[in-house]
């Protein structure tokens, strides 16, 4: 209970700071963000877009880890967690795609450009879609759990190529792509003033905590449904 309230306060602070703090040309005070040429107010996306994209990958890995655990121990609980994590991952993946596409329309001129990172999030969406169509196509519970675990592992070994390697070795629009004048690397290493960095990392942490809380909620509901079904 107290943790939930604390998380609520933290998220509120992050959202207020991310949206409310002024962006000015010459920052004088600790609460003013420096203006980045070409981005200005649009720079605020980083506080929301990056955490959602990060969570869509974290959820995918969580789903895979619990898939492996299921194959090891055959505990239906692990499959519930795996599926719940994948469901949340799909949600965050859609959020990251939509926020990114809307932002790209205003900053890069079109909703979709097939930039390497856009390709990778698209592939992630496809995998989530495939994962759930597989789950809905198998009726026997154990079989469904096994097959979807196997599929998520199979996807997890082929896909890192897209999410981690390709956006860095190919030229693209996102920061950190090859040929970026500020160096190919994670976006947070440059152009970000210390106070922005604080907000950014608080946002990342609080979104991750939000994910953990949502996951535990979903697992609990899924567990109840599971027990109701096996009783009835």
């Amino acid at each position: 209970m107290i943790l939930r309230v604390l998380l609520g306060i933290l998220l509120t602070l992050v959202i207020v700071a991310a949206l409310g703090l002024p962006i000015v040309q010459q920052p004088q005070h600790w609460y003013e963000f420096p203006s980045i040429p070409g981005l200005e107010e649009k720079a605020r996306i980083i506080f929301f877009h990056v955490p959602t994209a990060w969570l869509s990958v974290v959820a995918f890995l969580t789903s895979m880890v619990f898939g492996i655990r299921y194959l090891r121990r055959k505990d239906p609980e692990d499959d519930l967690t795996s599926a719940s994590a994948a469901g949340l991952g799909l949600l965050f993946c859609v959020l990251a795609t939509v926020t990114g596409a809307v932002w790209a329309k205003f900053n890069w001129g079109s909703f979709w450009n097939w930039d390497p990172r856009e390709t990778s999030i698209f592939v992630l969406l496809l995998i989530y879609g495939a994962y759930f169509s597989l789950r809905s196509a198998v009726e026997v519970e154990e079989k469904r759990a096994t097959l979807s675990s196997v599929y998520s592992i199979l996807a997890a070994v082929t896909v890192p190529f897209f999410i981690f390697i390709m956006p860095r070795i190919m030229t693209g629009l996102h920061p950190g792509a090859a040929g970026d004048p500020d160096g190919a690397g994670p976006v947070i290493e440059f152009k970000m003033s210390p106070n922005m960095r604080v907000v950014f990392f608080s946002s990342l942490i609080s979104f991750t905590l939000l994910f953990i809380w949502l996951l535990s909620l979903r697992v609990r509901t899924a567990r109840l449904e599971y027990h109701l079904q096996s009783k009835g």
């Binding site: 592939v123 496809l126 995998i127 879609g129 495939a130 169509s133 597989l134 196509a137 198998v138 009726e139 079989k143 097959l147 599929y151 199979l154 996807a155 082929t158 896909v159």
Partner: peptide, 17 residues
Amino acid sequence: ARANTKGTLYPVLSFPI
């Protein structure tokens, strides 16, 4: 082979991989 809708599911699962 273990799922119900074999034909349509195959390209869906294969494409991302």
